[in-house]
C-alpha cells in the first residue's frame, strides 16, 4: 500500500531524512520510534505533503500511485490521513462545516454523491461515540479553545469520518493524560481494519501498549536503523535510545576498522 524507497528530505538546506525505506501493507500497524530530532515528524509531514520540505532523493508510492507528485488534498482524497501532533486552531471555521466539506470533497473525488444532512448527522454521531467526543465541540470553530485531549480526540474523530486507507498518527499520545490516552487508543483500535494500515509515530512505549503494533522501527539521524516486532519497543523502553546509538556507533566503528 505504501512503499517508501530511499527518501531523502531537507528543509532550509538542512538534511533531515537520509534514505528511509519502508513497506506497509493493508491491515498492518507499524510504529516508528526514535529520539528527538531523529526525523519522525518530518517523515509524517513529507508523506502528508508539506511543501516546505524538499525531497532530494527517493520515491514514495501509495496504492501504486506516485505520492510525491500529488497535492496534499489529493493525497487525502486517495486515502492518506495524518493526525497532527499539534492540531491547528482555526477561528471562524465551524468544525461541523469543515468536516462536512472534507467528507463531501472526498466523496466527490470518488464520484459519489454528497451526503445529505440527515445521513451526515447520523455518521457524525456514530463516529463521535468512538472517541467520546462532546457534541458541543462540533459547533465551535476548529480546535479553538479545545483542551489538548479534545484536540487529539478531534483528530481521531476526523480519521473515523474520512475512513482512510493509511492513517499516520504523529505523536498522538503527546500531551495526553492516562485517561485521554486510553480513550484515543480505544478509538484507534476500533478503526483497525484489514484494509487499513496505521503508522504510529511516537517517542514512548505507552501508546503502543494499547495499540500493539505488528512492526516497530527505530529512526535515528533520518534513517531506520533497526526494525523488529513489538518487543523492540519494550527493549527501547527498558534500555533507552542510547543503546541504539551505542550499537550504531559500534557498527560505524567496526566498519571504519574494516576500511
Amino acid at each position: 500500500m505504501l512503499s517508501i524507497k530511499n527518501i531523502h528530505a531537507a528543509i532550509e538546506g538542512k538534511q533531515i531524512l537520509n534514505g528511509i525505506n519502508l513497506e506497509i501493507k493493508p491491515g498492518e500497524v507499524h510504529a516508528i520510534m526514535g529520539p528527538n530530532g531523529s526525523g519522525k515528524s518530518t517523515l509524517a509531514l513529507v508523506l502528508a505533503g508539506r511543501e516546505e520540505y524538499e525531497i532530494t532523493q527517493g520515491m514514495v508510492t501509495f496504492s501504486g500511485k506516485d505520492l510525491l507528485e500529488m497535492s496534499p488534498e489529493d493525497r487525502a482524497r486517495e486515502g492518506l490521513f495524518i493526525a497532527f501532533q499539534y492540531p491547528v486552531e482555526i477561528p471562524g471555521v465551524s468544525t461541523t462545516n469543515f468536516i462536512k466539506t472534507a467528507v463531501n470533497e472526498k466523496r466527490k473525488y470518488h464520484g459519489q454523491e454528497a451526503l445529505d444532512a440527515v445521513a451526515f448527522l447520523k455518521l457524525m454521531k456514530e463516529k463521535m461515540a468512538l472517541v467520546n467526543m462532546d457534541q458541543s465541540l462540533l459547533s465551535r470553530s476548529i480546535n479553538e479553545g479545545f483542551s489538548g485531549g479534545e484536540k487529539k480526540r478531534n483528530e481521531i474523530f476526523q480519521m473515523a469520518m474520512l475512513e482512510p486507507k493509511l492513517a499516520i498518527l504523529d505523536e498522538t499520545d503527546s500531551g495526553l493524560d492516562i485517561d485521554a490516552l486510553r480513550v484515543v487508543a480505544k478509538g484507534v483500535n476500533e478503526l483497525r481494519h484489514k484494509d487499513r494500515a496505521i503508522l504510529i509515530i511516537t517517542h514512548y512505549q505507552r501508546l503502543l501498549d494499547y495499540l500493539q503494533p505488528d512492526f516497530v522501527h527505530v529512526l535515528y539521524n533520518g534513517r531506520i536503523v533497526r526494525s523488529g516486532g513489538k518487543e523492540l519497543a519494550l527493549e527501547l523502553e527498558e534500555k533507552g535510545y542510547d543503546f541504539i546509538k551505542d550499537e550504531i556507533g559500534l557498527t560505524a566503528g567496526v566498519q571504519a576498522g574494516i576500511n
Partner: peptide, 21 residues
C-alpha cells in the same frame, strides 16, 4: 495545510479561511 490534508482543495481551503477572517 491542515484543511488540505483533509482533502479540501486549496482554493476552497483559502476561501474558507478568508471567510472565517
Amino acid at each position: 495545510f491542515y484543511l488540505r490534508t483533509r482533502g479540501i482543495p486549496i482554493e476552497n481551503a483559502r476561501a474558507m479561511l478568508l471567510e472565517a477572517f
